[in-house]
Amino acid sequence: MFKNVNCIESSEGNVWKYIFDFGDAIAEAVLYRYGTFEERTVICCSVQSGCPVGCGFCGTGKHFVRNLTKDEIVGQIAYILADKNIRSSNSSCEKFQIMFMSMGEPMLNWDQVEGAICLMYFGLGWKNAQYLISTIGVNDDEVFAKIIDLSKHIPTLGLQFSIHRGLDPARNQLIPFKNKMSLRKIRDAGLTWNKVTGRKVYLNYCVTIENSINHELSALKDLFPPIVFNFTFSIVCNSNESEKTNDDITILRNVERSFSKDGYNTRIFNPAGKDDIGGGCGQLWYVQDWLRKHKEQS
């Protein structure tokens, strides 16, 4: 399946980036170890080679090669588990999370993403794994209905919307992909998800100096009630490869505390160990170089 696989380890020793070269496409996946692999293992995998969405902070968002197949998606995870000798059984991994949030937009390749989830859950028997779909919220009611239907059959399926801004005009600048849900429609979709599944919806918010201002944060709190929505706050490296600063982390923690005080379940995507291997999802410089050098197919 893979013509070549490279692995890059962060300096602090708990984060690994894997680069999968298919010959005509490339994918990246990231492995996180929290404590030990038995305590908590997290794998973020790619669902597309490159991405057509074009988020302003993402280095791979300016290039799109092709969708990945379900076997190519599952293959990333299976390879990593074998490479690190991680057992995915219920008894050996206390918390095992698979997140579809490295390269690509899951809703734009939903049939293959759904096939991959079903293969892992029903075919491979990874029923202890938590599966998280991370999406900008593509404005496609048919696909969203399929996500809700799948969630009825897989109780460990989770949903996260990457919103990043608290007002639609600013979000449209950051995420120029036109066929996406408005923030209000994301709210309504999240309420529907919660009603059907009984599970809370995660909102991923990338904190910057520009969007940490009070009126944006107040708009978010007005729109997304804490009884339904959890917030994940994160920082990513800029697409020009610059690293995070202590000021960035201070702002991140201040925003998180503000939401926590108002009753939200919050978490911070710990920035440690990511700068030296190229930041978060879609930020691996090796992958950016590969995409720049290969002709886009779409």
Rank of each mutant, 00 (worst) to 15 (best):
I136Q: 09
S239C: 08
I73C: 08
Q288T: 15
R165H: 13
G190S: 05
D83N: 13
K152M: 14
A82V: 07
Y34N: 14
R257K: 14
N128S: 13
E105R: 02
V207E: 06
Y79R: 14
D188E: 10
S88L: 06
W126L: 12
K70S: 13
S218I: 15
F64H: 04
I133F: 10
I163S: 01
E9K: 07
W110M: 11
Q48H: 04
C118F: 00
V287Q: 00
I147L: 12
G35S: 10
D262Q: 03
S49Y: 04
I186Q: 04
T266R: 04
Q76N: 11
G23I: 13
K95G: 02
Q288W: 03
G50V: 11
K185M: 11
F96I: 08
V47F: 02
R66F: 06
Y205S: 09
E39Y: 00
R199P: 12
G273P: 00
V30Y: 01
E39A: 13
L252P: 00
N238K: 14
C44R: 03
K95N: 14
C51E: 06
F229W: 04
A129K: 08
C237R: 14
Y121W: 09
K62W: 03
T192F: 02
T36H: 07
Q288E: 13
C44I: 10
D24P: 05
M120C: 04
F233A: 07
V47A: 07
P225S: 08
E28L: 07
C7Y: 00
A170C: 02
S298Q: 05
M103Y: 03
G282D: 04
C7T: 08
E241V: 02
I163Y: 03
N246V: 06
I277T: 07
H63L: 01
E39L: 08
L157G: 11
